[in-house]
């Protein structure tokens, strides 16, 4: 499942001819990590780790992976925004978003 999302996203990056499309596929690649993280911390029958109105002895899912996923989502937002600004600049400088035509450097 996680491997599927990862593969789909990577396939998108590898075959894409459009930078923005590639960046969106990168978001998909990263979303595989959320699913994996939350998946490994899941406990069948567990409740969400909030003890405001339930007993502290209740079986709960792992809070750590949730904290990690939260961090991960922020990283995603930050990196994507930065990458998009590069893409906008690339379009301005090269007049295209096709990675094959952004070739200031070869060799």
């Amino acid at each position: 499942m996680v491997a599927w999302i990862l593969a789909v996203g990577l396939h998108g990056i590898v075959t894409s001819r459009d930078l923005i499309h590639q960046i969106i596929c990168l978001v998909v690649v990263q979303s595989s990590t959320y699913v994996l993280l939350l998946g490994v911390g899941y406990v069948t029958g567990g409740v969400a780790p909030y003890f405001y109105d339930i007993s502290q002895r209740a079986k709960a899912v792992d809070p750590v992976v949730q904290a990690l996923t939260l961090t991960d989502i922020v990283v995603e937002a930050a990196v994507t925004a930065l990458l998009l600004s590069f893409a906008v600049q690339a379009h301005k400088r090269f007049g295209t978003l096709d990675p094959h035509e952004l070739v200031e450097f070869r060799g």
């Binding site: 990458l83 590069f86 600049q89 690339a90 400088r93 090269f94 200031e104």
Partner: peptide
């Protein structure tokens, strides 16, 4: 970013 090289280099680097 007003030059072409840095933009391409940063994109390749970042992705």
């Amino acid at each position: 970013p007003e030059e072409r090289g840095p933009v391409q280099g940063a994109l390749n680097f970042a992705i």
